[in-house]
Amino acid sequence: MITYADFKQEHGGVNYRQYWGFIQTVDELVPADTVKVYYPANLYSDDGRLTLTLFTEKDIWILEKQKDDLNITVHKNYQVESFSRKIQSRNRCGGSALNVSLRSGASLQFDSKADAPNEDWVETFTGFIDDIFDLIVKAP
């Protein structure tokens, strides 16, 4: 699995100019060493959009890059009320979805088939969902 530090290093460099400024801003807001799990929805989209969800010890950061805009949502001291998971086949290539409801009333959806850049990435995005699932299942 690609760690957040590896993701940040790769996509924060000159090879990915469309993400460079975004990653630099995210790094100023959320230090990489505090990120437990991440999910990069819409990575490599044609229009340069990216929704990066970061889970830290106590907070969930949702950072959405759309053209030149950055929208930030933070769920401070989040508490999971409930979650549901759908595994679309026995192998990881079939995809996975996870819906998380927070006590605050907010809802988060992760879908490896919808969020991956193409079919080749579905298994990787299923791994990201596995990491989120493991984090919330083990949360007190």
Rank of each mutant, 00 (worst) to 15 (best):
K138T: 14
T34Q: 15
T53A: 07
L54V: 10
H75Q: 15
T34L: 07
M1H: 06
I87Y: 00
D59L: 06
Y16A: 09
S104D: 08
A139N: 10
D46G: 13
Q9G: 06
M1T: 05
D134W: 00
K36T: 12
T53Q: 12
F7S: 03
K76F: 07
K76G: 06
I60G: 01
D115A: 09
G94S: 04
N42P: 04
G48H: 02
Y39H: 10
S82W: 05
S82F: 02
Q66N: 15
Q9K: 15
E123T: 08
F110E: 02
G13L: 03
S107F: 00
R90C: 08
P140I: 00
D69V: 00
V74E: 10
K76L: 07
K58V: 02
N15W: 09
E123W: 04
D69K: 15
I132T: 04
P117Q: 12
R92C: 01
Y4M: 04
D130S: 04
G48W: 04
D33Y: 11
Q9L: 12
E119V: 08
R85S: 06
D68C: 04
F110D: 01
S82N: 15
V14W: 12
D59R: 08
Y16W: 15
D6Y: 01
K58M: 06
G13S: 12
L70C: 14
G21H: 13
D47H: 14
V26Y: 00
D120P: 00
F55N: 00
D33F: 10
L135F: 11
E10L: 14
D69E: 15
N42R: 12
D111H: 11
Y44H: 15
N91E: 10
T126Q: 04
G94W: 05
D111R: 01
H11Y: 15
T3C: 05
S84T: 02
R103S: 05
V122P: 01
F55Q: 03
S96W: 02
F128D: 10
P40V: 09
I129K: 03
D130P: 06
E28W: 05
H11M: 11
T51A: 06
L63K: 00
P40C: 13
A5R: 13
Y38T: 02
R49A: 14
N15M: 12
T126M: 03
R90Y: 11
F7L: 03
R90Q: 04
W20G: 07
A32C: 13
R90F: 07
K138S: 15
L43P: 12
I129G: 03
D134E: 13
Y44S: 13
T53L: 13
G21R: 14
A139K: 08
P40L: 10
D27N: 14
Y39D: 06
Q66E: 14
Y38W: 07
K58Q: 14
D6N: 11
K86L: 11
N99P: 07
S45Q: 05
F110P: 09
N118P: 04
H11C: 07
E28A: 14
S107Y: 05
Y19T: 01
Q9E: 10
R17C: 05
R85E: 06
V122G: 01
L50Y: 03
T126K: 01
F128L: 06
F55Y: 08
V80L: 06
S84N: 09
G127M: 01
S101I: 07
V26T: 12
Y19W: 08
F22P: 07
N77C: 02
G105K: 02
T56S: 08
A97F: 03
K8P: 00
G13P: 05
